[in-house]
């Protein structure tokens, strides 16, 4: 490679680093401005000292603490529940031969191909009939044994759990459920990490679900609360911008901690699927 093309290559790559990271920098810049002085010409580019003021404003604007707990609660329950059920079902597909396995695989492929919006209206009616409207349940239960997660875990467990170990466990008298809990789960950790992070991120960022099932400000999650605030806001935008930083930060921390594992696992997973 010539020096010129090398410089060009790095220039392009770094240009996109700038494009992708600037909005993250900018949200903190905005959150630190005086709420009534958000619009200036030229626009803001440096930090100011109003971040704490804006955080206080946020808690005056919306019940952000409750929204945060709702988001965290739903995401946590969904994450652990999904981890359990997808590993269990994935284990069945990866390590047992049984009648109907092929049909189940076909079902799984078809659920991945069905767009969310195709079912959304009858799903809403069903949730009302179940008396689940206004609760966390529609945002947790239907996704617990989801096809993507089961696929991911089945792929992973095929290689991670040797058949010899299963036979040995059976000879030692472990029940099949005991094997799942004591042999499979400990061996599934690397796959589980990916599944759990994907589930957590998806749940934390979900707008559509809570928008339909938890539309009230006091019961809803961060994305819906911020959307409501954004649509009804006049004047002081400080609280909104501060809220956005608090919506982004937890995920940033999770992802920066596990970044390498997630990127490798996710991209490989989506190519296999």
């Amino acid at each position: 490679m010539t020096n010129g093309s090398k410089i060009l290559l790095y220039a392009v790559l770094i240009f996109f680093v700038f494009i992708f990271s600037f909005p993250f920098y900018y949200v903190f810049v905005l959150a630190s401005q005086e709420g009534t002085n958000m619009y200036t010409y030229p626009p803001h580019i440096f930090f100011n000292s109003y971040y704490l003021t804006n955080i206080i404003k946020l808690f005056e604007d919306i019940p952000f603490g409750i929204n945060f707990l709702n988001s965290a609660g739903i995401a946590t329950l969904a994450t652990f529940g999904t981890a359990f059920f997808c590993t269990m079902s994935g284990f069945a597909l990866a390590k047992y031969e049984f009648k109907g396995k092929k049909i189940i695989y076909t079902f799984m492929l078809s659920t991945i191909a069905i767009p969310t919006f195709l079912n959304i209206i009858p799903f809403f009616k069903m949730m009302i009939a179940f008396n689940w409207y206004g609760t966390w349940l529609p945002l947790i239960i239907p996704g617990l044994a989801n096809a993507f997660g089961i696929f991911l875990m089945a792929q992973f467990l095929k290689e991670a759990v040797p058949f010899d170990l299963l036979s040995a466990a059976r000879i030692d008298g472990l029940s099949e459920f005991g094997i799942l809990m004591k042999v499979v789960f400990p061996l599934a950790q690397a796959g589980l990490a990916i599944l759990m992070i994907v589930t957590f991120v998806g749940s934390w960022n979900n707008l559509l679900g809570p928008l339909i099932f938890l539309p009230q400000l006091l019961k809803t999650t961060i994305p819906v609360a911020l959307t409501l605030l954004f649509n009804n806001l006049e004047g002081d935008r400080g609280g909104l911008m501060a809220g956005n930083t608090l919506a982004i930060l937890p995920l940033m921390l999770v992802v920066l901690t596990f970044s390498k594992k997630i990127i490798a696992g996710l991209t490989a997973g989506s190519l296999k699927g």
Binding site: F20, Y41, N205, N244, I248
Partner: peptide, 29 residues
């Protein structure tokens, strides 16, 4: 480092993205 920065937008919620971009899109400021 490149991969990590390229990955971050994907895990950011649409709501957060819109709130930032709405500011960038403001027609006067």
């Amino acid at each position: 480092v490149f991969q990590l920065t390229y990955f971050l937008p994907y895990i950011t919620s649409t709501v957060s993205i819109v709130l930032i971009f709405a500011q960038l899109y403001d027609e006067n400021y």
